[in-house]
Nucleic acid binder design. Sequence first.
DNA 1: ACACTTGTACTAATGTTATAGTACAATCAA
DNA 2: TTGATTGTACTATAACATTAGTACAAGTGT
Lengths: 136, 136
Amino acid sequence: MKPLFHINPTDPMPIYAQLERAIRFAITTGGLRIGDRLPTVRQLAVDLRINANTVAKVYADLEQAGVVETRRGVGTFVRETNGTFARQVRKDEDLRPLAEHFFADAAALGFTVEEALAFLITHFAQARTHGSGTER
Amino acid sequence: MKPLFHINPTDPMPIYAQLERAIRFAITTGGLRIGDRLPTVRQLAVDLRINANTVAKVYADLEQAGVVETRRGVGTFVRETNGTFARQVRKDEDLRPLAEHFFADAAALGFTVEEALAFLITHFAQARTHGSGTER
DNA sequence: ACACTTGTACTAATGTTATAGTACAATCAA
DNA sequence: TTGATTGTACTATAACATTAGTACAAGTGT
């Protein structure tokens, strides 16, 4: 089966940032639910082929942020007080760098902004009927 | 007037990567057009409050990638042979992983697919009507 | 020739990121 | 208690990113 998270070691984005983003994404999209246990520090390090210290720091950061709860000797779990993001100030402008990233990458493939945007609208407009189906 | 590029020094993404992306994005969206001259290394460093070396490296990378052309003593210009990539087989489906990446990042910030898409449409729908005016 | 601008090439210093390895603390099960 | 599991803490090392400063190379204009 496919691993829950992905890391691209060639991406200029630091590994810890990629992993934190991946975990937050999994929680946001239901790949991980409240109470779910995350892989152990050591196991995830092996799976992603990164250092255990890096994983441990990400877990610590997420703990600090209130996203997960860690119990020594037991594991790390998705926290219930998961209003996590709803609590923080979500400014629309935070989306801009992400959008720039997308359009820049699309341009590298030869797509114009219009073409890329058209693709998104066509394929993701009613993404609600997606129902990613496979739950754990 | 607003600067052409933005850098967020607190973003875990390295500054050089942010800048390279921003420049590619500006070219893609028409903020910079073929033949347009980029700010000088030193000037851009001052504007963005980053080091000139960092800017120089980004320009060198973009030169290497064929995105810009540099002429010593004159400046750095957006390259015409910018269709570089347009020449290759462009399949719409190639955009899917980029789109998923974007929505994943947006979700990590707490945005739904609809919200992220709405932002794109609002801010990038008619990016063509930029008309920066100043030609060389 | 001269001054000026622009990109390029260095050195050096500092901070961050990632790795390897070891050890310890807390929890659980037998 | 013993052993296994899990998160945490620490040292040390290497690589990368950023900055500051200086100097040089190539082009333009007077």
